[in-house]
C-alpha cells in the first residue's frame, strides 16, 4: 500500500510548492495512472516515493514503511520492494541484455545460481529471450524499455513505479509495454504509471490521479485524461 498523507514539498530555491497538501491512498494490487503536464509535480512525487527526496511536511508510507522513521541505512531495503522503469530506460550501455537484468540481482546479492535461473525466465516474460547477448544500442526503443522492465521486475517488487515508460516509444511499442504492465499487475504487483500519454490513459480505463501545478485536482476510478485547457 502507498499512502501520502498531507504531503507538501517545496524545494529550497523555490517560492512555490512542487507538491501541495497531497493525499493519496493506493491499495495493494491496484493499477494507477498519475497524469499531469510538466511542472505538475509528477517527478517530485516519484522522487519522494523512492526516498530520493524528503517531504517538507506530511507523512509517506510505502509497503508498511513509514518514511519518517526509516533510517538511512535501511533505504536500500525499501528500494528493493519498489521496481522502477524510466522514460530513458537507463540501461548500462557496456553490458549485454542478460547482464543488465542480472545486475539488478547482483546488487541485492542474489546467489549466482538463482540469477542464472531467474534472468532467462524474466527475459522470456518480456519477449527478449533470444536477444540476451545483445547490447542496448543494438535494440529498438521498445526492446530497451522491455529490458528495463525485466530489470525492474526480476527482484519481484511489491510495487512497480513507471516514470513515463512510453515517453520515447512509438504507439505500437507503447501498447506492448502497457500490456506487459497490465500482466504484471494481474499477477499481484501494484503498478503506478506516471504519464502524459492521453490515448493510453483514456483507453485503459484505470484509476487516474491528476496533478496540476502541485495540487491534486482529480482522483477517479476508471478515469480519463483531463485536458488542462
Amino acid at each position: 500500500m502507498i499512502v501520502l498523507d498531507h504531503v507538501k514539498m517545496k524545494y529550497p530555491a523555490s517560492k512555490t510548492y512542487a507538491l501541495n497538501d497531497i493525499n493519496i491512498k493506493i491499495e495493494d494490487g491496484e493499477f494507477v495512472f498519475i497524469v499531469g503536464s510538466s511542472g505538475s509535480g509528477k517527478t517530485t512525487l516519484i522522487k519522494l516515493l523512492l526516498k530520493e527526496l524528503e517531504p517538507t511536511s506530511g507523512k509517506i508510507t510505502v509497503a508498511d514503511t513509514d518514511y519518517a522513521k526509516l533510517k538511512r541505512r535501511n533505504i536500500p531495503k525499501l528500494r528493493r520492494k519498489i521496481g522502477t522503469v524510466f522514460q530513458n530506460f537507463r540501461l548500462l550501455k557496456d553490458r549485454t541484455v542478460y547482464e543488465n537484468v542480472a545486475f539488478a540481482q547482483r546488487v541485492i546479492e542474489t546467489p549466482t545460481r538463482y540469477i542464472r535461473r531467474q534472468v532467462p525466465a524474466m527475459l522470456t516474460l518480456v519477449g527478449l529471450a533470444d536477444k540476451y547477448k545483445a547490447y542496448p544500442k543494438q535494440l529498438s526503443g521498445g526492446e530497451q524499455q522491455r529490458v528495463a522492465l525485466a530489470r525492474a521486475l526480476v527482484n519481484k517488487p511489491e510495487i512497480l513505479l513507471a516514470d513515463e515508460p512510453t515517453g520515447n516509444l512509438d504507439p505500437k511499442n507503447s501498447w506492448e509495454i502497457m500490456r506487459l504492465l497490465e500482466d504484471v499487475n494481474k499477477k499481484g504487483t501494484t503498478v503506478v504509471v506516471v504519464t502524459h500519454n492521453k490515448e493510453i490513459v483514456n483507453m485503459m480505463k484505470k484509476r487516474v490521479i491528476t496533478l496540476k501545478k502541485g495540487e491534486l485536482i482529480s482522483d477517479e476510478q476508471k478515469g480519463g485524461y483531463i485536458d488542462e485547457d
Partner: peptide, 16 residues
C-alpha cells in the same frame, strides 16, 4: 555516475 545511480535506485547497499 549513471551506473551508481541505477545501483542505488535498485537497492544496492552503500557497501556494495
Amino acid at each position: 555516475k549513471e551506473e551508481i545511480q541505477i545501483m542505488k535506485l535498485i537497492g544496492a547497499t552503500n557497501f556494495f
